[in-house]
Design a protein around this nucleic acid. Structure first.
Lengths: 235, 235
DNA sequence: AGCTTCATGTAAATAACTTTCACATGAGCT
DNA sequence: AGCTCATGTGAAAGTTATTTACATGAAGCT
């Protein structure tokens, strides 16, 4: 009875069997990771939060790492869904959709710190877990697909950039900005702009470097006016 | 005598007092973090490796976190030195030196995984530690100084980009590439190019987006030929 | 040399966490 | 009703973090 003061009361409430412990544990772990970081969360804590003994979780997860992996797994799936929704198959136009994906990346890092931690900061052996790796690659595939479409719009007369390389570049930008400026204490660095603005400008400058017009309209549309530039009008 | 089988022998070797325990602990921790990650390393392990009792480290570090902070601190100092050396005050020319800094960033991430982990992946409260934050900012200052010089070379006729923004952009690229592709398992993702090449191309495209000539010569020098482009000659 | 002091280590103790194992419970099936 | 198996419980062993009282010996003082 050491693991829970009101064990008996709780027991009365839910009976000997929890009924949905696996889900409860995942949720508890998510909350704990969000609070104390991926390193701080303990298996025992999750059990306590779910109202079961410290041994109970072992019926659902081999060990602490498997629970963490499960969370990362779900994180990647949710990440993929989020990015896919933001991309929306490139509607209404490729560039607009692309910018939306960038913001979605940052939003995810900020709104789902627990998932983000488990996915990128927990030190999990990503390559040792095929399922996890596959989930990770499906998420990246969204970015890659978007880059593919963008590359296809490459202005005539310029060499067409490899879409995979573009995707890796964009990914690294989004990940770098998210990791450095959009999470936890890091977010407190005094920036001259929001992480979203920072990333958007970065991507726009990059795309311009590839020869894309960067006035926020679909590249297929003709330019109507000179853009002010990604960092605002010079004064 | 449970903490070390040949305690007495070791004791004979070095006497009751270690003589340089603080350094020994830092080194041990560094080795352990490199092996098992920042999360895996334990205070007790470090003590064992140094040949002292589990309580001894507390004479030199308030707790496990302070040891980790000390390592991060040194990491940032070493990082700063590495970047400063690579930058070499912009010699022989700004762009060449700039590329060297990028490579130095990746080298550091790869050659000093323990430092890198402690600095960026340990979940330490960076902003809660003024000393650490200052060290971190000194390292970033190198990148910022380089960006400053680069911004000054901005081609006439184009609006001059804010150097701080450029520095943040470059930093995020380097950090993103390092985190995603130049560390641990992540390094095993099949890439069409090395992380160094990936980053270099990314930065070159970005700089071109800002209006810089990107033929790898100092921008002050006149262009002699059309560059093939950052991703090689199209075939 | 003899004495004192203080930084540096040790031992032992407490509390928490991880993981395992034998045993308990009760939900669902026959 | 009786069985069986998935799911929980208790208790135990092994680790770690951290504290506290005590030990050691290097450095300085007399």
């Amino acid at each position: 009875m050491s693991w829970r003061k009101d064990k008996d009361q709780r027991r009365t409430e839910r009976g000997y069997h929890h009924g949905n412990l696996k889900e409860a544990l995942l949720q508890a772990a998510l909350d704990l990771i969000a609070q104390k970081g991926a390193a701080g969360f303990t298996f025992a804590d999750a059990a306590r939060m779910a109202g079961v003994s410290p041994a109970a979780p072992y019926r659902h997860f081999r060990d602490r790492d498997e629970l963490l992996s499960s969370i990362a797994q779900r994180g990647f799936e949710q990440f993929e869904a989020t990015l896919a929704q933001a991309w929306d198959d490139g509607h209404p136009d490729t560039v607009t959709a692309f910018e939306r994906v960038g913001r979605a990346y940052l939003d995810f890092a900020r709104n789902e710190p627990a998932f983000y931690s488990a996915m990128f900061e927990s030190g999990l052996p990503v390559d040792g877990n095929p399922t996890l790796q596959a989930a990770s690659e499906r998420a990246f595939a969204i970015i890659r697909a978007a880059a593919e479409r963008l590359a296809a719009l490459s202005p005539p007369g310029t060499p067409r950039p490899p879409a995979l390389m573009m995707a890796l570049h964009i990914w690294s930008m989004a990940h770098g900005v998210a990791s450095l400026f959009a999470r936890g204490d890091a977010a407190r660095r005094k920036l001259p702009m929001t992480p979203e603005e920072l990333l958007e400008a970065e991507v726009l400058i990059y795309l311009r470097g590839l020869g894309f017009p960067t006035d926020r309209r679909d590249a297929r549309e003709p330019e109507a006016e000179k853009p002010a530039g990604p960092w605002g009008k010079p004064k």
